[in-house]
Design a protein around this nucleic acid. Structure first.
Lengths: 131, 131
DNA sequence: CTTGACCTTCCAGTAGATGGAACCACTATC
DNA sequence: GATAGTGGTTCCATCTACTGGAAGGTCAAG
């Protein structure tokens, strides 16, 4: 398979696939003409990567997950550890965003949004005594 | 005030303040020795920027908000528009993260996390028939 | 033989900083 | 006056995870 084929099948852009090879996540063979030649196993790995990335795992997480994926004698605890850490980061990010949302929503609803210059949003950004 | 002073007062790292000057968000004067010389108004702007960034506004949003902040004849509608757009992006991000969280939490809790190699997390990443 | 779709590499850019090197300025002390 | 320490300066590189584009090679069809 050429890169266009695996791009279509995996849903990843060709650019991204080349990038993944660049950083060593996959190692496709080469044809005589210099084209990358993908095996079914490469396609599986790319699909794996696509799903892991969609779940927000970092590239480094993906690298570790790929290693574990290929290690038949892995301990599921190792995988779970990575996933749980990532879950924690997601929870932290969620909390941060929710706090932002609360504050921002309050500001938005307090602003008249008309032609007058008075704006509680700017006022708040300009000077917030405490908190 | 030197950069260290405004850094302490605004809570922003000196590096970040230099960066903000670099990209034109602030324009501090210079002393004879070449040091940046910050006015109180610069400090206010930096505090403004710090709060806007803490609310997740992009640098470009901040640039616009700063312009509106300094324009005494602005319409509050313009500010509200930026804030509401940002709120929408936050909501989208929140939804995305929440979906991730649901999927990931299910995977984590389904994994034994012991010494055996069987791992639903890897199994799921390796092949997800539909969805 | 040419067209077009595909492939290749390489270089630059994105957002928003951050780290470090090399060097200059100021103050205090010995 | 030499020195140490702190703070300032610039510039260049690095981070994440790609993405865009240029310049050019390859292949099948008409």
């Amino acid at each position: 398979m050429n890169i266009g084929d695996v791009a279509r099948l995996s849903g990843l852009p060709a650019k991204t696939i080349r990038y993944y090879e660049d950083i060593g996540l996959i190692k496709p063979q080469r044809s005589a003409n210099g084209y990358r030649s993908f095996q079914t196993s490469d396609l599986h790995k790319l699909a794996f990567l696509g799903r892991a990335r969609a779940l927000g795992f970092s590239i480094e997480d993906c690298r570790q997950l790929m290693t574990l994926y290929e290690d038949q004698s892995r301990a599921s605890a190792d995988v779970k550890h990575i996933a749980r850490d990532h879950l924690k980061r997601i929870d932290a990010k969620l909390e941060e965003l929710q706090q932002m949302r609360v504050t921002l929503a309050a500001l938005v609803s307090s602003c008249a949004g008309d032609n007058r210059p008075d704006c509680p949003i700017l006022a708040d950004l300009a000077a917030k005594p405490e908190l």
